[in-house]
Simulated assay, not measured.
Amino acid sequence: MFRNNLKTAWRRFLRDRQFTILNLIGLSTGLAAALLICLWVSDEISVNKFHKKDRQLYQVISNLKTSQGIMTMDITPVPLAESLVKEMPEVESAVSVNDFFNWQSREGILSSGNKHIQAQGWNAGKDFFNVFSYDLIQGNRDQALADENNIVISATLAKKIFNTTDNVIGKTLEWKYPFFDGVFRVSGIFKDPPANATGHFDFVLNIGVLLKNDRSAKNWTNCLAETYLILRKGTNVDRFNEKVAGYLKTKNPGLEVFSLFLQFCSDFA
């Protein structure tokens, strides 16, 4: 049976080679496209799934009402994270993250002795490593960002600047940036963020460094951070969104043009 089918197919091929080749090319192209789409979809849905509490992890988004319509932004006031933890029982933990100290440059220079490395850092609240599941090779995730003089660096950065990841805790690094500089003590080393992470960074400083160097950052009227939070299990997200929508107005009446809502962190690619 199989042999007969094979003979029939071969005879058809010999009778109309051009048509058969075109069909084969079309079939191969379709299969290749389908495979690429599957790989892309698989990669997209894996974004930020490495976080242990990814189904409870949300980013706070704001809608700004303007004369031209609604503008949706992923930046919020720096004090928002700490305030939500204190005032909203549904919030298990929250963190403010600033990955753009200013709009001109995201990178500065970290130095140790004669070594000078260009690096990109984030400012984040002390619970950063509890909200996000970046693995710490060294250091305590509860204490790594507890002090404004602390700096937590990636394994790759540690190897570049110290040639090792061993016995690095307690060493100091000098940070120079267009608008501020300082000396910080290494308090932890984290594995480099995986490929399916939304953000990639070389080190993390305490959010207090931002507040110290930009006093306006503590104002509710300035949006200089991204706010991420872990909702307690069983929280009704729709009801929480209703509760938090006008939250900024309670801090400053002039912020009534802003409306907050939550979106899964994994929905951002």
Rank of each mutant, 00 (worst) to 15 (best):
G199H: 11
T221S: 14
V78N: 06
L248D: 02
M73G: 11
T250K: 15
P79Q: 10
V237E: 04
I207K: 11
F268R: 14
V237G: 08
S187G: 03
L39Q: 13
A158V: 02
D142E: 14
L22C: 08
L255W: 06
V204P: 00
A197W: 12
L24T: 08
I75M: 14
Q59R: 15
V204F: 02
I151H: 01
S216L: 13
L173Y: 03
N150V: 00
I45V: 14
I61R: 09
E256M: 04
G108M: 03
A124K: 04
F19Q: 08
C223G: 12
G182W: 10
F101W: 08
E174H: 11
E87L: 13
V91Q: 05
N213F: 12
W10T: 03
N236E: 05
P193W: 07
I189S: 05
K7L: 14
H51M: 06
N167H: 09
K233P: 00
D135N: 14
W10E: 00
R55N: 11
N206P: 10
F100R: 13
T164P: 04
T156L: 06
N150A: 12
L84N: 04
Q18P: 00
M1Y: 09
S46F: 01
W10N: 03
R215Q: 14
N114L: 10
N206Y: 03
I153L: 02
E148W: 01
F203G: 01
R55P: 02
I230H: 10
P178M: 11
K53Y: 10
T250D: 03
T227R: 01
Q59P: 00
